[in-house]
Design a protein around this nucleic acid. Structure first.
Lengths: 355, 355
DNA sequence: ATCGTTGTATATAACGTTGTAAAGAGGTCC
DNA sequence: GGACCTCTTTACAACGTTATATACAACGAT
C-alpha cells in the first residue's frame, strides 16, 4: 500500500479531467515537448515519421494548444479589438462583419467593444482598457478629440476609421467625405432641384465627418449656382432614424420647404423618408432624397435609396492591413492616411421608378 | 570591462521598452510581487500604508496586469464567444449588442464569430475552434443538428439560442415560437382576413424554428375556422429581404392571391413589402402584413411593421446568466430550457395609419 | 581518419501571474 | 514571560508554451 489516499483500485483515474498539454502528448509519443511544439507549429526540420507519430497522438488525445500560454510566451494574443459606437447601427454592423472576416483571413480574432459614441468610453478604449489582451485596436470614434488621442499612453497599435482626427498620432482610413457629399448634392442639382436641404449637420465639437459633408454640400450648391440657404441646413443630435424624422418634420414645417434633401447618413434618410411618406409627400416627384453609407435597408425600402456607397470591404481590409503592419513592426514611421473609394449609387429616391 | 558588448556608456537603457510587470512595481515599492498581486486583486489583509505605496507606484509606472499570464495561471480567460450567422442581419446585431452589454456587466469580454449559418462552421465553433481561449460559448445555430452537438468533445460550457435542438446536451434560451406565430396569425384573422399566407417555411432538415412557426400558423387557421391552403405557404432558402421579396412575388402571381401575409421574420416581411408596394398594392387595405423579430427597420418603414417582439434583452441576459452558472460550476445537471417573453406589436402594416 | 555541414531532437530557462505554505510582527491572555 | 492568537508579508512553485543553445547523428569532402 504505497499511496493509501490516492484512488480506488478499479478506476484508472476518476478525476483525470486535467487539460491535456504538450507534456502528455510528448510522453505518449516518446518525444520531447519541444518536438511536439515543433510539429504543432509546422517547423520544417521534423522527420516525417516523428511528425506522423506526434500528430497521431495529438488526434488521439484531442490535444489543443493553450492559447493563454502561447500568448504569454510570445507576448501577443492574436486578438484585435474593434470599437464602434453601436453594433445595431447597420453601417457599423456591416463594417464589423467585414472586419471580422478580414481579420480571420490573417488568423486574428476580433473582440468588439461598443462605445455608444460616448467620449469617456472612447477615451478608455483608446487608453487601453483591454491592455495586454489585444495586439491592436481599430477604433471608429465619434466624440474623441485629437487631444484625447495625444494623451494616450498605451502603445498598442491603433487604426482609426472615419476622419474625426487629422494629423493625429494614429493611422486612419477614410472616405473623401467632401467630394462624396459634393457628388450627391450635384446629382440632386442636376435633376433640376433648386431648394436642396441637408440633414445631419452637427456641433463643431462633435463631428468632423458632419463638417466635411456639409462643406461638400456647400461646394456643390456654389458650383451649381444655387443660393446657400442656412435654413435648409438641419442639425441633428445623432445619426439615428428618429433624428432624421424629426429634422425632416422641421424642414417641412418651415416657410419654403425643400424639393430635395441630402442626408448625411442612410439612417437619417430613412427617418426623413418616413416623415415624408407619413405626410403624404411623393418621393421623388415632390421631394428627392439621397443618403450616405449604402446600408442594406436602403436597397429594400420603397422607394429604394440613392446614396453614397463607400467601399466598406476596402475600408475593412485596409484597416486590418495597416494594423497588422504596425503590429508586426514592419512599419514604424508617422501616421498614415488612406483614402478608400466611394461611388454614387442612384436609385428610386431621386429618379423614381418609372424610368 | 565587465560586459564589453552591452551598451554605450551614456544612455541609461536605450531599449528599455520592456513591458512593466509586477516585478518592477514590487522593486520600486519595496515589497514582494505577491503583495503587489494582493493589492491589484483587492486582497483584504494589506496595510493601508503598503496599499497606498503600491498603488502610487502602479500609477507612476502605468502598470497593467498581463491578462495572458493571469489566464494561464487561473485557467480561464474571462472571454466568451458569441456565434451568430451574420452580424449584419439586424436581429443578430441587436442581439449581439445586448449580449455584449450583459456580459460586460459581469466582467466578461465577448468575442464574435460569424458562422454564415453554415453547418461546417457551426460545427467547428461548437467543437471548440476557440478552445482554451474562451470560457464559454453562446451559439445561435441555423443548420446544426442534434447529432452534431452530441459529437461535441469539447467541454467548454455552451448555451444555445433559438430552439434548433431540443433535448440537446446544452442549455438553451427560446421563444415560444408556436404560440407567437399563432398570435400573429390570429391577429390577421381577427381583422377579417380570409386568405392568410405564410412566408418562411423551410426544409424539414434546415429549420426547427420555421417548423414551429408554421405549426403555430396552422393552429391559428384551424382555430379561426379558415381552410388551410398549402399553396399559401411559401418556402424560402434563407431569411433575407431578397427571399421575402421573391416569395411574395410568387404568391401574387398565383391564381388566388392572399389578402394577408405572416412572415416568419421581419426581414422577410420587409422584402415582401417591397414587392407589394412595387406592384402597386396598398398595405394594409389590400394586403395586411405581419413579421417576426421586431427589428428597428420595421419601426421606421412605411408602413410600420406589425410584428412579434421577442424580449431580446431577456434573451441576452438569460443566455449570459445560464452560461455564467455553468462556467462557475454552480450548476451541473441536465440541460435547461428557458422560455422568454414575447408580445404582438400591432402597427400600420396590419391596421393602417388612419386609426 | 578528420573535419565540417546539415538535419533532427532535446534540456532548460524564460514569459507574468497567483496559490500555497510558512515566516515575521504585533498583540492578548493566562 | 511564555504560549497562543491574528494580521501582514514573503519565497517559491506552478500554469503550458516557445527560444536558445546545444547534443547527437549521418554524410560528404578533404
Amino acid at each position: 500500500m504505497g499511496e493509501p489516499t490516492r484512488s480506488m483500485p478499479s478506476a484508472p483515474d476518476p478525476d483525470d479531467r486535467r487539460r491535456v498539454g504538450m507534456k502528455d502528448v510528448a510522453r505518449l509519443a516518446g518525444v520531447s515537448v519541444k518536438t511536439v511544439s515543433n510539429v504543432v507549429n509546422g517547423y520544417i526540420h521534423v522527420t516525417p515519421k516523428t511528425r506522423a507519430r506526434v500528430e497521431q497522438v495529438i488526434k488521439e488525445l484531442n490535444y489543443r494548444p493553450n492559447v493563454s500560454a502561447r500568448n504569454l510566451r510570445q507576448g501577443r494574443s492574436g486578438i484585435i479589438a474593434l470599437a464602434v459606437p453601436e453594433l445595431d447601427i447597420p453601417y457599423f454592423a456591416e463594417l464589423a462583419r467585414l472586419v471580422v472576416a478580414a481579420a480571420g483571413e490573417r488568423g486574428l480574432t476580433v473582440l468588439i467593444d461598443q462605445t455608444g459614441g460616448n467620449r469617456d468610453r472612447e477615451q478608455q478604449v483608446a487608453k487601453g482598457i483591454r491592455d495586454h489582451l489585444i495586439d491592436g485596436l481599430i477604433l471608429s470614434p465619434l466624440a474623441l478629440t485629437a487631444d484625447d488621442l495625444s494623451a494616450r499612453t498605451d502603445d498598442t497599435p491603433m487604426v482609426l476609421l472615419g476622419e474625426r482626427i487629422h494629423n493625429g498620432p494614429a493611422d486612419h482610413v477614410v472616405v473623401d467625405n467632401v467630394t462624396a457629399a459634393k457628388e450627391a448634392t450635384m446629382h440632386l442639382a442636376a435633376l433640376g432641384r433648386r431648394r436642396i436641404a441637408a440633414i445631419g449637420a452637427q456641433d463643431e465639437a462633435a463631428g468632423e465627418t458632419a463638417r466635411l459633408r456639409l462643406a461638400g454640400y456647400r461646394q456643390a450648391l456654389e458650383e451649381a449656382g444655387l443660393p446657400v440657404d442656412e435654413s435648409l441646413v438641419a442639425p441633428v443630435a445623432a445619426y439615428h432614424r428618429a433624428d432624421g424624422a424629426r429634422a425632416m418634420a422641421r424642414l417641412l414645417d418651415a416657410a419654403d420647404p425643400p424639393d430635395a434633401v441630402f442626408c448625411f447618413s442612410d439612417l437619417l434618410a430613412l427617418g426623413a423618408l418616413r416623415t415624408l411618406l407619413e405626410r403624404g409627400y411623393d418621393v421623388p416627384p415632390q421631394v428627392a432624397l439621397a443618403g450616405f453609407d449604402d446600408i442594406e435597408d436602403g436597397r429594400y425600402g420603397t422607394p429604394t435609396l440613392t446614396t453614397i456607397s463607400p467601399d466598406k470591404q476596402q475600408i475593412s481590409r485596409q484597416a486590418v492591413e495597416l494594423l497588422v503592419e504596425r503590429m508586426s513592426g514592419v512599419v514604424q514611421g508617422a501616421a498614415r492616411e488612406i483614402y478608400v473609394d466611394h461611388r454614387l449609387v442612384i436609385r428610386e429616391s431621386t429618379i423614381g421608378r418609372g424610368m
